[in-house]
Design a protein around this nucleic acid. Structure first.
Lengths: 198, 198
DNA sequence: TTTCTGTATTGAACATCGTTCATTTTTATG
DNA sequence: CATAAAAATGAACGATGTTCAATACAGAAA
């Protein structure tokens, strides 16, 4: 019955990630403290370090979960048999909706930095890839002569552009802008990008 | 001769900001430590807190300086009597060039977060405004019916889009991309945004 | 110049954080 | 049930930002 050990460890891991997720959602990544996580997870402080190497490991796990929910939300938003303009529009607005609804968790995806010199693990970098894929799909039909790499790079450019508009707004840089106005701007940019393919 | 007091204080402030700037340039914002700053500035640890309320205050001062240098670099890049497409292109590539040359200092502009609940001071928010203004100028001629607010918001959208592409790349999210390729993508986006105004 | 007073500077001390590890508790096995 | 191995615990450690009583200094008065 060595299964009980595994089950307990998995349960602890789940509780820690859940606690971390709730704390980031409520207070943002910056306010995250190991002691708060352990307390909320009903574990001892040291328990966190039997599952993760350090806090960064737990944050990556939280971000993993956020990315999965984001992916589900975006895939739900893709209309079947739509023009590329409609697809870009739906994806962009769904991305905006997710960022607004889960502001702190979404921000943690991009705010988090590994310590000096430590690279983001490859498995986590790969988890971001679907964002590119969602755009590369529709894009491929409009870039006939292009290689897969060309398409992926252009998809990344389009994603980053929309992401930038949302990030700058939600970070509160510059003077404020109403959510309605932000939605209009995101839609306008999505249309500009789609039209550039004609 | 109460001037000597002011002069010493200003000198201390200068040394602290210079030290902070060098440390962020070398090690990034995340590795910044109060003790390192004080040592490099040739001051006692407590001295830092006679000039700034806390580390955030010093970081804002460093970011102020970075913004001034960025502003100078961008203004230098605007060609006289150019089309809007050429202007967008020059500005975007100059922005990319600055971000690449001063990666850590540029990143600090957007990575830095005030503590939970503390807003960025208005005077520092205002320092970002020139970025919008540089784009709003050329834009105004192409948006005849629009209000000044409309133009400012659209300028912000365009800036944020280009910024997003550069930020996502330099942050090392997703898989890497060569500097040449990044330059091409930034140029392509600048052109797309300019053409959308025709 | 010398003395005195208020200000500026100092760095040891403090509170808080992430992380470690000797100890205790729990689980699996003979 | 007894014993060994593994896991969980939380006190302790080192590093950090910040404070503050003690010290050094600048400016005014004599």
């Amino acid at each position: 019955m060595t299964a009980k050990r595994q089950a307990k460890k998995e349960d602890l891991r789940t509780r820690l990630v859940t606690a971390g997720t709730q704390l980031i959602r409520d207070q943002g990544l910056k306010g995250l403290r190991a002691r708060d996580i352990a307390e909320r997870a009903g574990a001892a402080l040291g328990g966190l370090y039997t599952v993760f190497d350090d806090l960064d490991g737990l944050i990556l796990a939280v971000n993993s979960g956020t990315l999965k929910r984001l992916e589900a939300a975006l895939e739900r938003a893709i209309p079947p048999d739509a023009t590329i303009e409609q697809t870009f529009l739906s994806l962009s607005l769904a991305y905006l909706g997710f960022a607004q609804a889960e502001k702190n968790l979404w921000a943690a995806l991009f705010e988090h930095r590994m310590p000096e010199g430590v690279p983001v693990p490859d498995w986590h970098l790969a988890e971001h890839a679907f964002l590119i894929g969602l755009i590369a799909g529709p894009l491929a039909g409009r870039m006939p002569g292009a290689t897969a790499e060309d398409i992926a790079i252009r998809a990344r450019t389009f994603f980053s552009a929309v992401h930038g508009v949302i990030a700058v707004s939600l970070e509160g840089r510059f003077v404020g802008i109403t959510p309605e106005r932000l939605e209009r701007e995101v839609a306008a940019l999505a249309r500009i990008l789609a039209k550039s393919l004609d």
